[in-house]
Every structure is written in structure tokens, then in C-alpha cells.
Write a protein that binds this DNA or RNA. Structure first.
Length: 573
DNA sequence: GCCGTTTTCGGCCCGACTGTTTTCAGTCG
């Protein structure tokens, strides 16, 4: 939890410094530190106790002192000073696509605009276009950006909410008189974005426990409160609902509070037809008013004549019908994953060496790992030219002779250029074990052009996988304007694999599209797109998408053994 | 801000695209 607090504060500092127009590298230092700490596999508090903070890459004297201060006091003076002179709405404005630090400073300095609402109002009244550097189009783009933001503003990433929910759950489960704790709601169903955190606890003394809970340091504001439930705003700006139920009703309540609404409505209809009433207190037999208290969620489903349905499937998309017929999918699990096929090393914009990535992959129990650095046109990412790629291939071949227990596949993430051609010629691609193709430029081309680019890539005999096929960034960027029908069709005809990119802000393909791909017989690869060996563990986010998309191990190529995978990749060519 | 070192201070990330200009600034990946 402390890691998130520190990361949150450093990010907030970075945002304010950016708007102030501070030194770019200083800002980057804060952001980099925030990122590192958030993804640290260790508790920052433990490192602080052992005086090891400065051993973390990117943490020096100044930042480590601030970390000590945050651990001790929950904040630091520098941060508080900054905030004092800074309307909070300014940082919020950074979230608007098209609004950067400079424009925010401009509208604040010249028009005194310090919130998104004021900005919207000024844009509507055509006041922004009077400012230097802002014309009609920019004004309209800002309005559009505000709309985009509004559509997502009440949602946060699964990856942001989950660790916080887990931390609070673990604190709750440490309280005496709490007999059970579970995360519920959409977070338990592992939706890509959630509105809030829902937690349900079992206790015989709800009032006392809720009172204790409200004393936790993470709570900024109590929004609502009654005997069995509190609703609070956490100091990271995330809403949390905590429900307390009696121990005997816990499993019924957990099922009920996990939802989804669509799923539960269907279940309740089935219960009604069987003469039961299903709610958070238990299962009531209407005939004799006898209440059945399920001892597990499994018992809830069994009572209604069907096998257990995992939370990820509970979206009312046919899972109940499938369960009744006994044909629920054999869901893919973490243990099925034998490798990661999209990883960046420090040859391009990754931070880890190939060797350290391989070691980490081995430690995760993988059989193989593909190194797929960017191609030459993606300059900002340090894309590899042909000779550098060949050099990398040679090193990988050499490493494979020495390494034991893990196989490195030589690959590349090749840019699909704006004219539809690939960034490497076929005679280079054929040297690789695996080729990923993806779009990183020309996002605003028209639908036909963009679609054709991806379809063309599918038809290249050396392209194995299309990475992040729709290009969306959750909460920030809509998918490219592409005709996914044609993309699916091309993937199905050519046998091209589509990716579920497990990076928490992409999750692309999404669950619905993954299900459709499966139904069309298209193979999927679940890849992390890691730029740091530590984020190889993002695989779990991709797996949840896959599970929500009804995928089974056989649908996913990185469940294959190395022999089967290599055969599969070869046959594609 | 950090880092590496020449232990005191310079280097750290570049180019396309867009909209606004009329030569360039801001944003984004």
C-alpha cells in the first residue's frame, strides 16, 4: 500500500512540475521513480527500514528523503507546498486528450481557468480561440477531449484498483472478529476498468469493525454510512464500498455482491421458478420459509442446478445457459502459460537486458520467451535497424547454446508503416523465429486505409501475430477506426494470431473480441509487451481478459510446448 | 531529479503530425 501512496504522490508532483514548466528531466525523474516504486515486487517500507532505498534505480538522495517522509507522515513538505499554490483542477486537465502542460498554463495565466468545468465553459463561449496559438480547431478538439474524458472519468484501471483492494482486504482480514474477507463487484469479475472497489466481510460485530475500518489512514472522506455498510473516498481518489454480513450469510452475500446485474437477474429468475428466493441473506425456500445458507459459492450454483461459474464469466453472456447444459469452457489458467511472446529488451526501449529477462522468465516457470524489439522507423523507441537486429539474433542464438531451462526466441515487433508496408523486408523477417506486426503511427488515417494496413500485414507470410490490434489506450485513446470484421476475416483466412496485449492500460483485444476470435477459430497469444522484466507478471491481466472471453488453453498459442509452438510458427510461413 | 564520473557538473529523447502560423509551438507516441 505504501508503494502506491509514494507512487501516487510522486506522479502528482510530476504533474504539477510539468504545468509549472520545470526541467523536463526532473519531471521524468519523478515519473520514473513513481513507475519503479509502483511496480516494485517489494514493500518500499521494508527497503526503507533496511536503508536500501538508494539502491533502487532512479532513486537518489532527494527522492529517498521524500520517501522516508511519506512513510513516516503520509505526505511530504515539498508536495504539500506545491499543492498549496496549485488549484487541483489544473492537474485534472492533463487528462484531457489534446491538453498538455503548456496549454493548461496558458489558459490559467490568461483566463484564470482552473478546472475542467471552467475550461469547457470557456470553449463553449469561444473564448479559447482568442488566445495565441489556439484556433477554432483546437477549441473544438478540447471540447471533444473533455467529452472523451467524461465518458471514462468515473472509471479506473483494474490494475490501479486491484492492488489497493488487496491491501485493504489484507488489513481487514487481520482484524479480530472478521471471519472472512473477499473483494466483490466488477473488480472480482476482473473488468478492465471499474468504478469503485467493493469488499464484503463476514463478522458478528459489524458496527465495531466498520468503526475500526474508518480509522485507517487511507480514508479521505466518508460518503455514506449505515449499520452494515460504509462508502468512503480513499486518498487516491478511489471510492470504496465495504459491506459487513453475518458469517453464515457470507457466501450468499459474496455471490450477490459480485454480480453482474445481468447474471444475477437470470439466476434469480431460475431461483423463482424453482420456488426459491435468492438474495444476499441466503436462499429462501418460499414454501416453508426455510433459509439455506450456502457454505460456498459453489453451493449457490448447485442449489440452482448448475455447476460453479467463475466470477470472470458472470456477465450474462450465455454462461448460465452453458452451465445448465454442462458445457462451460475449460478456462485457461496461469499454469497453462508457458511463455511470453512480446517482450522488449534494452536493445530498443526496454530497460532490462535479454539475459535478465530470460532469467526472470525462467523463474516464472516459463519454457520460452520471445524478444521482440521495435523496428527502425519507431525512432523514439530506439527501433533496431537491420544490422542491429542481425546482431541481436546472433546474440540470442549464442545465448540459447549456453542457457538451460529456457529458450529465447528471436523476434521483432515490426511497424506496419503508414503506406501499409512493413518496416523490414521479407528476407530479414524470415531469419526470425517469430514476427509481430503492429501499428504505431498514422492513427488518424481513414477506416479503409487503416484496415487495409492490418489486413496486408496478416497476408505477409512471415507475420505470426498482430499486436494490440485495435490500438486503444484505456481511458485515454479510443481504438483506431478499423473494420474489425475484415481484420478477423483476414486473421482467420491467413491463420494469423491476434494478441491479447496484457499491458493493463491496453488489454487489447478486449474480452468480447477475444470471444469472437475464438468462435471464428482464430488463435490468440496473450503477451505482456513488457518493457521491464518486472512487468512480465502483467500476464495475469491478459489472462483475465482471456477468461472473460471464454478462452481455453488450446485457443492460446503460448500454452503450447516449445516444440508445438515452433511447429505452429513454421507452418504459418 | 539521477547518474557517472573528469568528485562537479553536463547529459539525460526524437520525430511526425496538427494547427497555427508564415517559421514554429505543442502534443503525442
Amino acid at each position: 500500500m505504501r508503494n502506491f501512496e509514494v507512487a501516487f504522490i510522486f506522479n502528482d508532483i510530476a504533474n504539477m512540475l510539468e504545468i509549472k514548466g520545470e526541467n523536463f528531466f526532473k519531471i521524468r525523474a519523478y515519473r520514473k521513480a513513481a513507475y519503479t516504486i509502483e511496480n516494485l515486487p517489494l514493500e518500499i517500507e521494508d527497503l526503507a527500514k533496511q536503508s536500501q532505498l538508494q539502491e533502487i534505480e532512479g532513486i537518489g538522495k532527494a527522492l529517498s528523503e521524500k520517501i522516508y517522509e511519506i512513510i513516516d507522515t503520509g505526505t511530504c513538505r515539498y508536495y504539500e507546498e506545491l499543492k498549496k499554490n496549485f488549484p487541483p483542477g489544473l492537474v485534472e486537465m492533463l487528462k484531457i486528450p489534446g491538453m498538455g502542460a503548456k496549454k493548461i498554463k496558458l489558459v490559467y495565466d490568461s483566463l484564470g481557468i482552473s478546472s475542467i468545468e471552467e475550461l469547457e465553459e470557456a470553449a463553449r463561449r469561444h473564448k479559447l480561440r482568442t488566445l495565441p496559438g489556439i484556433g477554432v480547431k483546437t477549441e473544438q478538439a478540447i471540447l471533444k477531449g473533455i467529452q472523451t474524458l467524461k465518458n471514462n472519468s468515473d472509471k479506473i484501471l483494474l490494475a490501479t484498483a486491484l492492488p489497493i483492494a488487496e491491501r485493504i482486504s489484507s488489513i481487514l482480514s487481520g482484524m479480530t472478529e472478521v471471519t472472512n474477507v473477499e473483494i466483490s463487484g466488477s473488480l472480482r469479475r476482473k473488468k478492465e476498468m471499474v468504478k469503485d472497489i467493493d469488499i464484503v466481510i463476514a463478522t458478528e460485530s459489524p458496527e465495531a469493525i466498520l468503526k475500526d475500518f474508518l480509522r485507517l489512514p487511507y480514508i479521505a472522506e466518508v460518503l455514506d454510512q449505515d449499520l452494515n455498510k460504509v462508502s468512503v473516498m480513499l486518498n487516491m481518489g478511489i471510492k470504496l464500498d465495504l459491506s459487513a454480513v453475518k458469517t453464515k450469510a457470507f457466501c450468499a452475500a459474496l455471490q450477490c455482491f459480485t454480480g453482474s446485474k445481468e447474471h444475477n437477474t437470470k439466476l434469480q429468475n431460475i431461483a423463482t421458478n424453482m420456488g426459491y428466493e435468492l438474495n444476499e441473506h441466503g436462499i429462501l425456500k418460499k414454501e416453508n420459509k426455510k433459509v439455506f445458507y450456502p457454505k460456498s459459492e459453489k453451493e449457490v450454483y448447485e442449489k440452482l442446478g448448475m455447476p460453479y461459474i467463475i466470477p470472470e464469466l458472470r456477465e450474462g453472456r450465455g454462461e448460465i445457459e452453458a452451465a445448465m447444459k454442462g458445457c462451460l469452457p475449460e478456462m485457461i489458467k496461469q499454469e497453462d502459460i508457458r511463455g511470453d511472446l512480446h517482450v522488449h529488451s534494452n536493445f530498443s526501449d526496454g530497460v532490462s537486458s535479454m539475459e535478465s529477462i530470460a532469467k526472470r522468465a525462467k523463474a516464472l516457470g516459463y519454457e520460452y520467451i520471445a524478444i521482440t524489439d521495435h523496428s527502425k522507423s519507431l525512432r523514439i523507441a530506439g527501433g533496431l535497424n537491420e544490422s542491429r537486429l542481425k546482431e541481436q539474433i546472433d546474440i540470442i542464438r549464442d545465448m540459447n547454446n549456453k542457457l538451460e531451462g529456457i529458450r529465447i526466441l528471436a523476434g521483432a515487433e515490426v511497424d506496419i508503416l503508414t503506406d501499409g508496408t512493413l518496416d523490414f523486408a521479407d528476407d530479414i523477417l524470415k531469419e526470425l523465429d517469430i514476427v509481430i506486426a503492429s501499428i504505431h503511427s498514422g492513427f488518424r488515417q481513414d477506416r479503409k486505409t487503416l484496415t487495409k494496413r492490418i489486413v496486408n500485414a496478416c497476408h505477409n507470410p512471415y507475420v505470426n501475430i498482430i499486436a494490440h490490434p485495435t490500438g486503444r489506450i484505456l481511458g485515454r485513446r479510443a481504438p483506431y477506426d478499423i473494420d474489425m470484421d475484415l481484420v478477423f476475416e483476414a486473421a482467420a483466412t491467413t491463420g494469423t494470431v491476434l494478441e491479447i496485449n496484457a499491458s493493463p492500460d491496453r488489454l487489447d483485444l478486449n474480452d468480447v473480441m477475444a470471444k469472437r476470435a475464438k468462435e471464428m477459430g482464430i488463435k490468440i497469444a496473450i503477451n505482456t509487451d513488457a518493457h521491464d522484466k518486472e512487468t512480465l507478471t502483467d500476464m495475469k491481466y491478459g489472462l483475465w481478459v482471456a477468461r472473460r472471453g471464454w478462452l481455453e488453453p488450446e485457443n492460446v498459442i503460448n500454452t503450447f510446448s516449445i516444440e508445438k509452438l515452433l511447429d505452429f510458427l513454421k507452418v504459418m510461413q
